[in-house]
Computed example of a mutant assay.
Amino acid sequence: MGHVTLKDLAKKLGISASTVSRALHDHPDISDKTKKLVMEAADKYGYQPNPIAQSLKKQSSKVIGVIVPEIKHNFFATVISGIEEIAYNAGYIIMVCQSNETLQREIVTTKALAANRVAGVLMAVSLETTTWEHIRALMKQGIPLIQFDRVIDELDTGKVVIDDFRASYQMTSHLIDRGYKRIGFLAGSEGITMNKLRFNGYRQALKNHGVPFYPELHINIGGCRGRNGRIGAEEYLKMDNPPDAILCINDPVAVGAFCRFREEGLRIPEDVALAGFSGSPESALIEPGLSSVAQPAFEMGKAAATLLLKQLHEKENFRPETITLETELLLRGSSYKEKK
């Protein structure tokens, strides 16, 4: 037989569904004999309570909503695995939604999760998210929220991030150290804190090492996907004096640029060096391999879920904190030509 319901169980025992329900919940009105009978039958027929139906009755759920820009992005897929490990062990299931990098979908998703009375929400904002009334509305309904990776500073929530400024500073310093002089920056979207921090780290490294910043080499491609990287590469290819190295906002963008440069017959890193962010598996698959900032995605997921559970546990006493995780540079062939 398929999924056994409460009603099926009641029918088999010849008692009412409400009696079965009370027996399963150890209600004092129900005799021990009946409770024993119901428990044994539940075991025998493999009755599983419906967690969603139960949570609607209790007005609180064991479901955690997770909103990510894209699931296919290896970084977010790995973060989700980290979240699930912690959530599952604490008796929660996760409901994953993707905003597809649009504000509109993020708004719809936030409302849907609130309507479904999730216990809490873990969120990395979309590239279009420059207004956040929808997130404030969620918080006003008393739904705990933790932000991770891409966060909005202005919102007073727990956050789990990497030190984007420092990581970008280190990677830019590496490019300078290898003898590159005209270093470009392929940016995702202006509004995002992560983008600003990575850009500022790049600028600071240039300044501290006495390498000029060329404004025309800072291109805002408006997205974080491979096709955006191709668009950026296209812009550089039109220049009379193109960059000799480029720091990209993330790995998909770097791989997109890499492929476009290759089509034009450019040699990497001899003609142009490339570096990305996230340390995704595809960064190691291209030849030469892509230099990248390895972000601890699995740990980020675990830390975000742990912080949310802490908030659920402490309720009103919870004080939002920001957890900053360590990164490391994965230095590969895309930035490693011999020094000039």
Rank of each mutant, 00 (worst) to 15 (best):
I146K: 05
E299H: 07
Y169W: 09
E270G: 09
H27F: 08
F261D: 07
G158N: 09
P288N: 11
N208A: 11
A115F: 01
S173P: 05
N116E: 08
G65A: 07
F75M: 13
I162N: 09
F75R: 13
I15T: 13
L285T: 14
I135D: 10
H25P: 07
E314R: 12
F199Y: 15
P69D: 04
R262K: 12
K44H: 12
M300S: 09
I219Y: 11
R117Q: 15
G65Y: 00
I80S: 05
P215C: 08
D240C: 03
P28I: 01
V255L: 15
S99G: 10
S81H: 13
T327N: 06
A23Q: 13
L331D: 13
E299A: 14
I231R: 14
K58L: 06
G2W: 00
L56P: 07
V68A: 06
K57S: 15
I83Y: 08
I86H: 09
V4T: 15
E40Q: 15
K72H: 12
R203M: 11
E40G: 10
E216W: 02
A294R: 09
F148A: 08
I146W: 02
A53H: 04
G301E: 02
A112T: 15
E216F: 03
Y214V: 14
R22D: 10
A119I: 00
L329I: 04
H218Y: 14
P288L: 01
Y88H: 14
E270R: 09
I192K: 03
K44P: 04
D156F: 06
C259M: 12
A17N: 09
K58M: 07
V68C: 05
F75D: 14
Y236L: 11
A275I: 03
R150W: 02
A305Y: 00
S18F: 00
E234P: 04
S189I: 06
L329P: 11
N241G: 07
I268K: 07
K339R: 14
R117W: 00
K62V: 06
D251V: 05
A304M: 02
K36G: 14
G82I: 03
K315V: 01
V211Y: 01
K72C: 09
V255G: 12
V161W: 01
V161P: 06
G256E: 07
F76G: 13
G232D: 05
F165K: 06
L9M: 14
L138E: 02
N195Q: 10
R267Y: 05
S55F: 03
I135F: 06
V121C: 10
M300E: 11
I176E: 04
A284C: 05
S18H: 02
P269L: 02
L330F: 13
A77C: 02
S31H: 12
L325C: 13
I323E: 12
P243F: 03
G65C: 08
R166I: 03
I221P: 08
S60E: 00
